[in-house]
């Protein structure tokens, strides 16, 4: 029965979360090669300061929403 699960791994999509340390705003966007946690990346839409990647994680790909 365990064999039935083989190859059934859901496809995943990886996101980088940019965080503004001043405003506390999070901006989730698709991962780009070269991203890493702590990297300075993007401008805060509210205060214009440089944001920091606070997390990189994978989520299951849901058909129709990605």
């Amino acid at each position: 029965m365990m064999g039935a699960e083989l190859g059934s791994e859901q496809q995943q999509v990886v996101f980088s979360v940019e965080h503004c340390e001043v405003c506390g705003i999070d901006n989730k966007r698709p991962f780009q090669k070269g991203d890493f946690v702590i990297k300075r990346s993007g401008k805060c839409p509210k205060c214009g300061r440089e944001m920091m990647i606070s997390a990189i994680y994978a989520e299951p790909l849901v058909k129709g929403t990605q």
Binding site: M2, G3, L6, E9, V14, K33, I56, A58
Partner: peptide, 24 residues
Amino acid sequence: IMPMLLKQAEALVNAMPTLEMGQP
């Protein structure tokens, strides 16, 4: 033990693109 081994082997192969992209 084969189903368990295969599952781990598949996970190892699936991890290779993650490594290549430098994702945590």
